[in-house]
Design a protein around this nucleic acid. Structure first.
Lengths: 338, 338
DNA sequence: TTTAATTGTGGAATCGTTTCCGTGATTTAT
DNA sequence: ATAAATCACGGAAACGATTCCACAATTAAA
């Protein structure tokens, strides 16, 4: 199989490679007749330009790196769909990586991306990420990086989040209005911003309602599902168990459902529950799960739009240091109602 | 910002670029002392080789293209996790594309991948894919392509599937044993193999049980959720509605749940239901959903292993024309029990 | 009619790595 | 002691596309 490249086309056409290249790129300085001849042969031989030769020359790869902490999660899948929807209109490609909530993995992925493999990075940091040295390095290398959901606050770039504080506040208020007096908060990690903000909303709602509060109502959970199941069950057995749970991430709510079922308690009669989640079938669960659902597609689209606008303008790339908030929507279902 | 490349390192070290390159690649013909000096400076300046220059030179990109018809779907997410688990051990990267069940989109994606952007392709075809001309072209270009789940039968390559026929048969038998006499089959598309095979199993099970069967029990569904909801409701209203449903894909089962709820029928008392699905929370649904779950991670891992073995052996790449079956597991839950 | 501008094309350098081909300087074998 | 082998490295070509720089031919301007 002969590799079909510009040189090959040029020989066949008795032209210089430069002419062929210009014709293919529809340069104004090539005559119509020549362009047509070149295009015709290119189509006939199904010529495809080599993207790596192009990237090498142009110092741009038309590729975006996307790093998420979890793939089996509708929220992240939706965000990526949103990103792809925009980027593909501009001819960009997506390298997608899963950090599995592991900082070390995250660092490794970042290092892959440093050599110019991608023109920009869109990411949501792992729940373990406390030090941000590896992220700062990206910026130092001049690679635009933007964050969504799990953001690195101190990195000067644009970050897309939802109204975490307000949602945490509202969800807690809703539980209180449903009769809860002792609401536990399931936290994935104190390291990440969404955890902190949602927690702050929860705390303020309790304070605003003049309800009692104990430090140990904030449950720091693990990465492993099994350990979380045991952890949750451990506080469900005693008499002084909570009457409400606000879960900061979907998978902890799932574990809570399992734990509550196993302890023969009832939702919502014994315990009411609401969680941050983008599950599509929350309404088909038993009982239907109340959720705070994030505008995932829109977050993805906005990330991509910002990037496309910057990468395709010839002027200096400049991504402002600011936080953009796109509000979530609370879907009240049976799991949190009296 | 000075770009740090091999030439730059060479100048700093007073060596030839070729020496630096060899030192970095731990070539046997470079002295230990030189290697150490080079490595030290490379680490100090945080040198990252340019992947595109490498790919151009080596005619290999260390990148795999993955094409799926749907991203908001645990099955495909799990497969990708499985692929990534293996490929990252070999230093490969994943370009992931969503065809949105659209052949035209699929063709476009394939054309992006033809210019050498990826070393191989792993894909599940869209439900609209009947002609396979665009897929044959990939093979003609010498790019290894392997299929999983939704396979293109006539392309001579390795395909990974689950025991679709047997699962369809077993699931139908299970419904019959649960008392169903009139089982409908929800089909996404007759174009794709999984549809055909699962349907064949269903038909044979009915035949084997000496039950009656009518052609219109096989429901050809749409891509749009709304239309499917109406379609399903339309056959639930009449007196001669089915008493069982086998759904060939997850999203149709979800629509069926909604439809059944809206028509005030009960699962499983009025209608029993079982579906192919890799939903993790099937047991938390109302009622718990019986599923045939596919070995998604393993499928992903096996696809990747096959590819890695072929791409990294120096010998001629040869991917056999065969179908490898990894069996699914039926999880019987309340939705299909008497 | 001479000069200047425009048009259409070719040649060669370039992007950053890798590798083929040399070539002195040692070391080993005869 | 001489030939042969080995070692450690340098120079330059190559991968495929783009683009800067020329330059002849044609057209427009003076």
């Amino acid at each position: 199989m002969t590799k079909i490249n510009i040189k090959y086309l040029a020989e066949k056409l008795n032209m210089a490679p430069s002419t062929v290249s210009r014709a293919l790129n529809d340069s104004y300085e090539i005559s119509k007749a020549t362009k047509e001849k070149v295009m015709a042969l290119a189509k006939e031989l199904n010529y495809q330009p080599n993207p790596y030769a192009r990237s090498l020359r142009a110092h741009r790869s038309k590729t975006i790196g996307v790093i998420i902490p979890e793939r089996i999660n509708n929220f992240f899948a939706q965000v990526i769909d949103g990103i792809e929807e925009i980027t593909q209109q501009y001819g960009y490609h997506l390298l997608v990586y899963n950090s599995h909530e592991d900082v070390e993995q995250e660092k490794k992925i970042i290092s892959y991306l440093l050599g110019g493999r991608v023109d920009a990075i869109v990411m949501s940091v792992s729940s373990q990420t406390s030090s941000t040295e590896h992220l700062e390095q990206v910026l130092r290398q001049g690679i635009p990086i933007i964050f969504f959901d799990r953001i690195a606050q101190n990195i000067p770039t644009t970050k897309f989040i939802t109204n975490d504080y307000q949602s945490g506040f509202d969800a807690t208020m809703h539980l209180i209005q449903s009769g809860c007096r002792k609401i536990y908060f399931l936290l994935l990690s104190k390291e990440i911003t969404i955890g902190k903000e949602r927690l702050r909303g929860y705390l303020d709602a309790i304070k605003a309602s003049n309800l009692p509060f104990l430090e140990n109502w904030v449950i720091q959970c693990y990465q492993e599902e099994k350990k979380n199941l045991e952890l949750i069950k451990s506080f469900l057995y005693p008499m002084d168990r909570p009457d409400g749970i606000l879960s900061s991430v979907e998978k902890l709510a799932i574990s809570a459902y399992h734990a509550i079922k196993q302890t023969k308690l009832r939702i919502p009669e014994d315990i009411k529950l609401i969680t941050f989640s983008n599950l599509k079938i929350a309404d088909l669960m038993n009982p239907p799960l109340s959720t705070i659902s994030q505008p995932a597609y829109e977050i993805g689209r906005e990330c991509a739009k910002l990037l496309m606008n910057n990468l395709n303008k010839s002027k200096q790339i400049s991504i402002e240091d600011k936080v953009i908030t796109i509000p979530s929507v609370i879907h009240v279902r049976s799991s949190s109602c009296s």
